[in-house]
Nucleic acid binder design. Sequence first.
DNA 1: ATACTTGCAAAAGATTTGCCGCATG
DNA 2: CATGCGGCAAATCTTTTGCAAGTAT
Lengths: 142, 142
Amino acid sequence: MSIIEEKCKAKGVRLTEQRRIIAKVMSDSKQTYGSKDHPDVDELHKRVSSIDKNISIATVYRTVKLFEEAGIIERHDFKEGKARYEPLTDEHHDHLIDINTGEIIEFVDEEIEKLQKKVSEKLGYKLVDHKLELYATKIKKN
Amino acid sequence: MSIIEEKCKAKGVRLTEQRRIIAKVMSDSKQTYGSKDHPDVDELHKRVSSIDKNISIATVYRTVKLFEEAGIIERHDFKEGKARYEPLTDEHHDHLIDINTGEIIEFVDEEIEKLQKKVSEKLGYKLVDHKLELYATKIKKN
DNA sequence: ATACTTGCAAAAGATTTGCCGCATG
DNA sequence: CATGCGGCAAATCTTTTGCAAGTAT
């Protein structure tokens, strides 16, 4: 049973054959495709189709939204016009996007995290969520 | 002549009657609607239509993209599925979005800015652009 | 049993584009 | 005058939804 399937159970999300497969595909994402994997719906649909070709893309859309609302996966809207997803881990991280290659690197910086909270409070708000994306180019080594 | 129209001239962006009007509407944005103003294309189209009702929404789309690529205005993709725009100022700022009301507050934090640069360099990248959005709820005062 | 799910195709919403007459530099 | 621009409607792309039939608890 995949990690995401377990989380569904824990959160009382009803499981079906389709959802189990999508859960598995999402769970396998980084293991199979590397830590930079952030598949979009179309890519997910291709992957689940290779397991069960009857799963419609509408179901992928519905399931991915369901998982996201349950706090099981995370949705990203990088500057592309379509959403990308990744399993939600305990350790939060932000993203650096290579604007030449599209490569995505994950990073954490505790100091920045703290400062965000501080800024919010200074403005009279309680921080609920945030998005930090760095768009950058690779430094050439000579 | 509006500020944005001036910038177009400076950058050699060809001007037309429609573009002048859209430039003016964008230039007036914060003065007229407050510092929280970040109109989407539909809203912009309404505003320009009140000046010249023959301007099509396609032209607004084309012009807004043109201005953005020329580095004259800034495009934001908050979590809504449609783009919002604001004039680009010399002083960069980030956004805090009130998830209950949709209100947008602008802020700057030099320390966070510096840290972002540092993080990028540590990863072997040169920071070109970034996006920081804080999603938060207002703290009730008792 | 009964409420929730799914596949399909159609719909919706945002944005882009082809065409052709028209305006700009 | 030549090239680029704008209006219109059609096309595109991503995501959502109505419906009828199937499935999980």
